[in-house]
Amino acid sequence: MRVLAAMSGGVDSAVAAARAVAAGYDVTGVHLALSRNPQTYRSGARGCCTIEDSRDARRAADVIGIPFYVWDMAERFHTDVIEDFVAEYAAGRTPNPCLRCNEKIKFEAVLDRAVALGFDAVVTGHHARLGADGLLRRSVDAAKDQSYVLAVLTRAQLDRSIFPLGELTKAQVRAEAAQRGLAVAEKPDSHDICFIADGDTRGFLAQRLGDEPGEIVDAETGEVLGEHSGAYAYTVGQRRGLGLERPAPDGRPRYVLSITPVSNTVTVGPAEALAVRTVHAERPVWTGSPPPAGPVECEVQLRAHGSPVPAVVTLAGDQFTAQLRSPAQGIAPGQAVVAYRQDSDGDIVLGSATITEAR
């Protein structure tokens, strides 16, 4: 079986490639060049798209003993991830660029090219499991689980995916890397958004969208409390950085409740106003089984590092609705809602959709 190992230059993808070789696959390594100018992306531990990462991936491939190539995906990444990121913020939503990168780059563009070149599957270092039944499950390492950002994958894409690290903790991955003589064994994990060089998301968006002054309004009274230079700098649930001079009459903090791009208004209010019972979403992908004909009792995760919430999920055409059994807070349109079901072997991903409204 010929497989393509996507090698980011980090420890996870290096160990995944090595494990694929040990499993008897015919493995070729590939590093994705995602930046038009790699020097503008983060360096060292702060990114996954640098020249340094490319070199680390090549060295790991040499140690493992597999062929290695670099694929230029910069234009596709710019269009499908960066431009999408900016457009989503401009529309008042809060996107997850890692999720979009998995969907559009690693498991669409890369997988399509791999299959066209005669490969049978793609191997990655994601912390998630694919069981013998083909179902996507959470990693055994809950702190590193990445099933949330993989829940956008279709059944056909999962059938051509291999995740060798799902049964390992991160500590075990590092120990195995050291045992195999991989220099990336102690390389720190990447963090934040790889294409924002200094970590300043607000500044990154301001450069592309410009200043768009608008009002910050109290949800309860309609009073104008202040001004902002761009609604894109805010997200639902945000407390800090609102720039309000006057505190609430009761002295409690205010939070962003909603963003309205048409009027360029940011609406703020008390924490209890963030409580959500119903989540509407679009573009559902159902991978755990055939799409359900009726309501499904399950758990839903509403952001990348959020806790699961018991819910009843229904699908109606292109619409996904989750009725939460207990309220959740700070749910932002643009994020994913991912449905899970538990069995004796852990959590199974049933499906996902993109949140359009939370009430």
Rank of each mutant, 00 (worst) to 15 (best):
Ala5Asp: 03
Val11Thr: 00
Asp12Tyr: 04
Val15Arg: 00
Val15His: 03
Asp26Cys: 00
Ser35Gly: 06
Gln39Val: 15
Arg42Gly: 05
Ala45Ile: 04
Arg46Ile: 04
Gly47Pro: 06
Cys49Val: 13
Asp56Tyr: 14
Arg58Trp: 14
Asp62Thr: 07
Met73Ile: 05
Ala74Met: 08
Glu75Gly: 10
Arg76Thr: 00
His78Phe: 05
Thr79Phe: 12
Asp80Trp: 00
Ile82Tyr: 14
Ala87Cys: 13
Ala87Ser: 14
Tyr89Val: 05
Pro95Gln: 15
Asn96Pro: 11
Asn102Ala: 03
Ile105Lys: 08
Lys106Met: 12
Glu108Phe: 08
Val110Asp: 02
Val115Met: 11
Thr124Val: 06
Arg129Phe: 09
Arg129Gly: 04
Leu130Lys: 06
Ala132Arg: 15
Leu136Asp: 11
Arg137His: 15
Asp141Gln: 09
Asp145Asn: 08
Ser147His: 03
Leu150Val: 03
Arg155Gln: 14
Ser161Ile: 02
Glu167Arg: 09
Ala171Tyr: 13
Glu176Asp: 14
Glu176Asn: 12
Gln179Phe: 11
Gln179Ser: 15
Val184Arg: 03
Val184Cys: 09
Glu186Tyr: 07
Asp192Ile: 02
Ile193Glu: 03
Ile193Arg: 11
Cys194Gly: 10
Asp198Ala: 07
Gly199Ile: 06
Gly203Met: 09
Pro213Leu: 03
Pro213Val: 02
Val217Cys: 08
Ala219Lys: 01
Ala219Trp: 13
Glu220Gly: 00
Thr221His: 14
Glu223Ser: 09
Ala231Arg: 08
Ala233Lys: 09
Ala233Thr: 10
Tyr234Asp: 00
Gly237Glu: 04
Arg239Thr: 10
Arg240Glu: 02
Pro249Phe: 08
Arg252Cys: 08
Ser258Cys: 07
Thr260Trp: 10
Asn264Arg: 15
Val266Trp: 04
Ala273Pro: 14
Ala273Tyr: 01
Leu274Arg: 00
Val276Cys: 15
Arg277Leu: 02
Arg277Gln: 08
His280Cys: 12
His280Tyr: 06
Glu282Gln: 14
Pro284Asp: 10
Pro290Gln: 08
Pro290Gly: 01
Pro292Ser: 07
Ala293Asn: 14
Glu297Cys: 04
Ser307Ile: 12
Ala311Pro: 05
Thr314Met: 06
Leu315Glu: 02
Gly317Ser: 01
Asp318Glu: 12
Gln323Ser: 09
Arg325Pro: 04
Pro327Asp: 09
Ala328Lys: 10
Ile331Cys: 08
Gly334Ala: 00
Ala336Cys: 08
Val338Ser: 11
Val338Ile: 13
Gln342Tyr: 15
Asp343Tyr: 08
Leu350Gly: 07
Gly351Arg: 15
Gly351Ser: 09
Thr354Arg: 15
Ala358His: 04
